[in-house]
């Protein structure tokens, strides 16, 4: 069992959990993910690691309550335990294995969107610890939905905020801010890393392509086991089918077929809605009679 050491609300429906998982904490590297199972009847939920502390034996995950299972996870409280917490899975970010000297000469731009901001943090933190500078853009719909701004400002060289409504920082999408930085503020970058909703990553790559700025994305596809067994996470990269769990989760954003990836993400949406309806019915104490459970 994996005890929740701390739970915090970061924004509406977005929660941080620091979980006791010593083996995962010791092995985790930036870019990797874990599979979480809440209880005996729970799904295996893939979540990108948002921080880790080997000394404390803890791993941090940040979850947005969207589907039936993420809602259930977000309803868990400090002191309670998760049935399973397996990982770290997938390859670490490419820079982890690169020559530090070469790395220090590179100018990194991270583009973080929504709940995807959390997994950007351990990457920028790792770079900072190894003497590599990185600028970070955090995007959100509105000020109250921004997360990780304080933590990020401690590790980022420059932190830029973009909100759709202009309630904080730059008014507009992250893609417009990328253009603004490069076109008008004289910024130059060698690598871009974008993590956020699939649609955001797609448009970031369309923008960075204009500048021939190599862009890495982290895909949050469907998964069951997360170890290469099921193939639910397959995605087309450079015209080839690969598995996000074992070949990724980070890929060359210019090569990813985002439209297919977004479509495949919706494979079980109707089932998820159904599961949520059944769960709500059960909470109300009666069995479903309108055939939702059929």
């Amino acid at each position: 069992m994996y005890t929740i050491l701390e739970k915090r609300t970061l924004a509406e429906n977005i929660y941080l959990m620091r979980v006791h998982a010593p083996r995962v904490a010791r092995a985790a590297k930036p870019g990797q993910f874990v599979i979480v199972r809440i209880d005996e009847v729970g799904e295996r939920i893939p979540l990108t690691i948002s921080d880790y502390d080997a000394a404390e034996g803890s791993v941090t995950i940040v979850t947005q309550a969207i589907g039936a299972s993420t809602r259930k996870l977000c309803a868990m409280e400090q002191g309670e335990s998760l049935a399973d917490f397996a990982g770290p899975l997938g390859h670490p970010s490419e820079f982890v294995g690169e020559d530090l000297e070469a790395l220090r000469s590179k100018r990194f731009l991270f583009v973080a969107g929504g709940v995807g901001t959390a997994p950007v943090y351990p990457q920028v933190k790792w770079l900072k610890e190894h003497g590599v500078k990185a600028d970070v853009i955090i995007g959100a719909k509105t000020k109250s939905m921004l997360i990780y701004t304080e933590e990020m400002s401690r590790v980022a060289e420059n932190l830029y905020i973009a909100t759709d409504d202009g309630s904080e920082g730059f008014k507009g999408m992250v893609t417009a801010l990328i253009k603004e930085l490069i076109d008008n503020r004289g910024k130059q970058y060698d690598v871009c890393v974008a993590i956020g909703p699939m649609i955001m990553m797609k448009f970031v790559t369309l923008t960075t392509r204009e500048y021939s700025l190599p862009t890495i994305v982290s895909l949050n596809t469907l998964m069951v086991d997360g170890t290469g067994m099921c193939g639910a996470c397959r995605v087309t990269v450079g015209g080839k089918t690969v598995f996000t769990c074992v070949d990724g989760p980070e890929f060359d954003g210019f090569e990813v077929d985002f439209d297919e990836a977004m479509r495949r993400q919706g494979m079980y949406r109707t089932q998820e809605e159904r599961a949520r309806a059944i769960a709500e019915e059960r909470r109300n104490g009666h069995k479903c009679r309108v055939g939702l459970d059929k």
Binding site: E43, V224, E272
Partner: peptide
């Protein structure tokens, strides 16, 4: 593998379990 893992390991055939199929 995916289909059988969902049903056997995750017991998606049982409505008490959360995994969809």
């Amino acid at each position: 593998n995916e289909f059988l893992t969902r049903t056997n390991l995750m017991k998606a055939y049982d409505e008490e379990y959360d995994t969809p199929i």
